[in-house]
Write a protein that binds this DNA or RNA. Structure first.
Lengths: 230, 230
DNA sequence: GCAAAAGTGTTCCCAGTACACCCATGT
DNA sequence: ACATGGGTGTACTGGGAACACTTTTGC
């Protein structure tokens, strides 16, 4: 089968920078090991060619499902990369996405996947294929700005979480410490968290209050010129 | 001539949302009228197909030069749009850019261009071809956030400008009033503007001090955790 | 001299920051 | 009883917001 066009066309791919928060509070990126040339054996972002009549977001979700088994995750476009030399096979434009997953659900799955997918700590990534190192750096920068302005951090945590978990998440992503009292004051005043009738269990210290993020409340506040801004 | 591939490929285009500031302080968008189907006769964003081995930014600049005569302008990627139905001719992915020009230079040029390019006031755009209305709305949203965090507003003004012009620019883009004294205080304290040895001339009122934006100073400040944030 | 915009300082308030101790739970 | 993290309040400070009059220029 062949497909013919009047003018040359670049290939179009999608690539995903998937972030997950380790139980030890280290931000991880999901990579897959390439089988085929170019860059056989090297690590790369999960992704692949956009199919005929397939949307970009749809393609990103499909590739993630196929290559890592992950479905139903937060996924948003980063930007397109189109330097003509970025792929040695020929002119290829890739649309990069960044995604956030709750590692409490997916931790085992990806590690044992047949396609050799693995989580790597953000600050100790291996050499990456193509221009994927640039894409990862851009994704980290975007994650850092976005997490300060929109409540996407919750995507990295389980549905029920403690304020300390949330604080550590912000400290990890932004690589800077927060004052415990000020952090709690700020977040509770935003009035987008709901205290559950539940506490931590089986911890060797005072059990912490569990909270959940209230999307509906956030959307209300959203209207009335309110800003998240951590 | 024909080009053949093993798998179908979407076409790849670029589209540019070019903003200019009218002398009457109205934000304008540059549109071109289409000659050919689909959407013949309708207004659309300047743009077109990415050529073989051509970078995305390069393609955007080329199309702008060809279709509107504008060169050397601020241009940054917005995002890619790839809904399969967005182009009736077939699966087409477009990478959208937004651009800023100083209308004091380009005002006449675009209006008299052979390809029927025209500036339209942002709030009274005609119906647009493809999904270009969505792209324009996204570009406006991005412009509004970006102009508050990075000093890109100066791209819309002549090299020498008054503080009142700058204030009106922000008021126009953000569609909200600023207090004159507070605005000046804030901007001058940032220390990225340089007062010139020059004043306005031929105005029927007290002549205003002219300033220019000092890119070098901005880059210095940039390092030392300083934020623009208007 | 009048119309039109330039230019300039002070007060108030809120939000961010810094900071230290007691409490609950499991071992 | 002890180790571990959970949970809480206050004082200070700096930046944003509100606000009105004098100055300069061309006509």
């Amino acid at each position: 089968m062949a497909y013919t066009y009047d003018y040359p066309r670049p290939a179009v791919t999608v690539d995903c920078v998937v972030f997950g928060l380790d139980p030890t509070d280290c931000l991880q990126v999901l990579l897959i090991q390439r089988w085929l040339d170019p860059f056989a054996g090297q690590w790369a972002l999960p992704g692949g060619f956009v199919r005929h009549q397939e949307g970009l977001v749809q393609a990103a979700h499909r590739e993630l499902r196929e290559e890592t088994g992950i479905a139903d995750l937060f996924l948003e476009q980063l930007q397109a990369y189109g330097q003509p030399q970025r792929d040695p096979r020929g002119h290829t434009v890739t649309v990069a996405f960044y995604a956030l997953v709750n590692l409490w659900n997916y931790q085992v799955r990806a590690a044992t996947d047949a396609k050799q997918a693995r989580w790597w700590p953000m600050d100790r990534l291996p050499a990456l294929a193509f221009d994927h190192d640039v894409i990862v750096q851009d994704a980290i920068a975007t994650l850092r700005t976005t997490i300060r302005h929109r409540p996407i951090g919750f995507e990295l945590l389980p549905a029920k979480f403690t304020l300390t978990q949330l604080q550590r998440l912000y400290e990890t992503v932004l690589a800077r410490p927060f004052d415990k009292r000020n952090f709690r004051k700020k977040l509770l005043k935003l009035d987008i968290l709901v205290a559950l009738d539940e506490k931590e269990t089986n911890v060797a210290h005072r059990a912490a209050q569990l909270y959940r993020f209230d999307q509906a409340k956030y959307l209300e506040r959203q209207q009335t010129e309110f800003n998240f801004d951590l």
